[in-house]
Design a protein around this nucleic acid. Structure first.
Length: 427
RNA sequence: GGCAGGUUACCCAAGCGGCCAAAGGGAUCUGACUGUAAAUCAGACGGCUUACGCCUUCGGGGGUUCGAAUCCCUCACCUGCCA
């Protein structure tokens, strides 16, 4: 048991999950001493968490599996202030909106760790809990007094802001709020480790120093690396540029699955280590398969399956796998039985047309959402990237007939190699 | 507060009265090659239109002109120098 609890650091290390840390050996000792309480905070900056947040949630889960106790902290208060970015002051978001967002992401936050009565049972907190009603005078005396502006000014983000857009006092204060969070969690639950992305390093160290000053105790901090793909792009940005959201209403499980099935060979093994719970030997085997028979995309498939199951559950995963197989497998669309076809269409974006309106391929592409305009649709056709039911359409005037509709109701429209949508035929 | 410079399409960035829907690069998209990969090569890349063409866009507003992203006035914001 004891061995397990401290080996978590070795596991994080081989997975490539440790970017920066305070004293690792001291942390190792505390971990060995028994269940350690650790936390990570999440500000409600949108209506859903995104793929980037996943790394932190999964890391909390790894600690829990290793016999420690995770605290998931929702930033009901900090979300109203805004962590300073490299460039540009954030617009203030009203408390109502922050509360509404928090309501939406709460389920996502609480989904990756296990809440039970055991010593490792997770805890959910909200920093509004201690900031609500915390007076300005009290804040300045209890918190502000322990922070040196000189030190704060030396931080990279702050320096950059001072050199460019400037920064408001409000955002400048963010560090103090996050540091106070750590203190509160230390006092309430004995929390002795905070984890976060490497961009959180300054905030985490701020809390560690603060706790040392007021409590005379050394607590720990650990950050995960910023995940980028082999092109240097931030992980979790879909190819279109939008984020990959955890909320299935914002990013469909099918789109989520497709993102991971398309991950480049150069990235896939690293992602498996970072985001999945697969053991070392299994990942090594997938690495060998990627090298020896890359065309089978075994690692990509496994990554997509694991992450879709993690976020959307096994049932959804089975459905998107079936849908992906139907759309990208060798089989003829016409051979799909009605139930399968309906299930596939439920996963992909869809639109609808009435044959009475005499729609052309251009209309199909537009209505399916595969292109933004008729001009773009014509372009796609000219470029040879338009397909209906797996048949290339090169005539802009092509019109679907009633007989083209699969099971009398669906046309499968495709743009390029992998953008598929369904169009329901009304008559 | 004074002086100087800046604000261009998703991002960076040219343009400095008509030849500007606006150079170039990046991003993105499509095609070829492959493996629903990468690299490479080619093409596309404001909207409507089969097309001639039409419409909207160069920080906001208002002018000058046959004609403005380009000139003038004004407002906003940013940068630098000086107080």
């Amino acid at each position: 048991m004891r061995a397990v609890t401290e080996q978590i650091l070795d596991e994080l290390s081989w997975r490539g999950l440790i970017a920066q840390s305070t004293d690792l050996e001291a942390l190792r000792k505390d971990l060995a001493a028994g269940p350690l309480t650790l936390y990570c905070g999440f500000d409600p900056t949108a209506e859903s968490l995104h793929a980037g947040n996943l790394l932190q949630l999964v890391t909390l889960a790894r600690f829990q599996r290793a016999g420690h106790r995770p605290v998931v902290l929702a930033g009901g208060a900090t979300g109203q202030i805004g962590d300073p970015r490299e460039v540009g002051e954030r617009a203030l978001v009203s408390p109502d909106v922050v509360a509404a967002r928090l309501e939406k992401i709460r389920a996502q936050l609480e989904k990756f760790v296990v809440f039970d009565d055991s010593p490792t049972g997770a805890i959910a907190e909200n920093n509004l809990h201690w900031f609500d009603g915390f007076g300005a005078l009290e804040f300045l005396r209890e918190v502000g007094k322990h922070f040196s502006v000189n030190t704060m000014l030396a931080r990279e983000t702050i320096k950059r802001r001072l050199a460019t857009d400037g920064i408001s006092y409000t955002e400048f204060s963010y560090l103090l709020l996050q540091s106070y969070d750590y203190l509160q969690l230390y006092r309430r639950y004995g929390t002795k480790l905070q984890i976060g992305g490497s961009d959180q390093w300054g905030n985490i160290v701020g809390g560690v120093d603060y706790i040392r000053r007021v409590e005379g105790v050394t607590v720990h901090g650990l950050t995960t690396p910023l995940v980028t793909d082999s092109e240097g792009r931030k992980f979790g940005k879909s190819t279109g540029g939008g984020s990959l959201w955890l909320d299935p209403a914002m990013t469909s499980p099918y789109a989520w699955f497709q993102y991971f099935i398309n991950v480049a060979d150069a990235d896939v093994i690293r992602y498996l280590k970072l985001f999945t719970f697969l053991p070392q030997e299994e990942i090594a085997e997938l690495e060998r398969l990627t090298k020896d028979e890359p065309f089978r995309r075994a690692a990509q498939r496994r990554l997509a399956e694991e992450l879709t199951t993690l976020v959307h559950g096994p049932d959804q995963t089975a459905q998107v796998i079936a849908a992906s197989q139907a759309l990208f497998g060798k089989g003829e669309f016409a051979a799909l039985d009605e139930a399968t076809l309906d299930a596939v269409m439920a996963e992909v974006p869809t639109g609808e047309v009435a044959l009475a309106d005499d729609p052309t391929i251009v209309d199909l592409l537009v209505v399916s959402g595969l292109v933004d305009s008729k001009g773009a649709a014509r372009r796609t056709i000219r470029e040879g990237g338009a397909y209906v039911n797996n048949t290339k359409i090169s005539d802009e005037e092509w019109r679907p007939q009633a007989s083209d509709a699969l099971h009398g109701k669906w046309l499968i429209v495709r743009r390029g190699k992998r953008n598929v949508a369904g169009v329901r035929v009304l008559r």
